[in-house]
Computed example of a mutant assay.
Amino acid sequence: MASLGVGNLGEFLREQRRQARLSLRQLAEAAGVSNPYLSQIERGLRKPSAEILQQIAKGLRISAETLYVQAGILDERAQDAAGGAAERAVPGVREAVLADPGLSGQHKEALLQIYDSFRASFDKTSEQASEQASDMENTEKEKD
């Protein structure tokens, strides 16, 4: 069977599964897919749907968006435009956390949740400051 160009996704999934210390069978069971199907995804022979990727992400305890980007379903720039606060952050932070072999899946999820909350808080504060500056500017113009 020919590769479908999803080898990077398969390699990424395999690495995430190994870091989470899950066997192929354990992840397949957690994701609700068959063992052979998950094996084919990891080998780049099958291209999973967004729903299957979501189930796999849940089994790995990582964000589905991360898998969507890896699979080419979601472009990181499109995710930025959609308003993903964490995705507007410095490139590489999320990838570094996800790629760290010394962290378990649970640790990665916790770190990314904390990071996302900091980014969301920062974005909200920046937006409020921008609105206040705009309001002050408009007030000054009205006085003139």
Results as ranks from 00 to 15, higher is better:
residue 103 L to P: 13
residue 99 A to T: 12
residue 59 G to C: 13
residue 93 V to A: 05
residue 61 R to I: 07
residue 99 A to M: 06
residue 80 D to K: 14
residue 55 Q to N: 14
residue 73 I to E: 00
residue 43 R to W: 00
residue 73 I to G: 01
residue 83 G to N: 10
residue 73 I to K: 00
residue 59 G to K: 02
residue 54 Q to Y: 03
residue 77 R to K: 13
residue 81 A to K: 13
residue 58 K to A: 09
residue 67 L to E: 06
residue 54 Q to H: 10
residue 59 G to W: 03
residue 83 G to M: 07
residue 77 R to F: 06
residue 45 L to C: 02
residue 82 A to Y: 01
residue 79 Q to L: 15
residue 88 R to C: 11
residue 63 S to H: 05
residue 94 R to W: 00
residue 91 P to M: 02
residue 44 G to A: 12
residue 82 A to C: 13
residue 84 G to Y: 01
residue 54 Q to R: 13
residue 49 S to I: 12
residue 96 A to R: 11
residue 55 Q to V: 03
residue 56 I to T: 06
residue 96 A to F: 01
residue 85 A to D: 14
residue 105 G to C: 14
residue 76 E to K: 13
residue 86 A to H: 03
residue 70 Q to P: 07
residue 88 R to G: 10
residue 82 A to H: 03
residue 89 A to N: 02
residue 105 G to R: 12
residue 93 V to Q: 01
residue 62 I to G: 10
residue 54 Q to V: 08
residue 74 L to A: 09
residue 78 A to P: 06
residue 93 V to L: 03
residue 90 V to P: 08
residue 105 G to N: 14
residue 87 E to F: 02
residue 49 S to A: 15
residue 81 A to L: 14
residue 105 G to V: 12
residue 56 I to E: 03
residue 98 L to I: 04
residue 59 G to A: 08
residue 59 G to D: 10
residue 51 E to Y: 05
residue 44 G to N: 07
residue 49 S to Y: 09
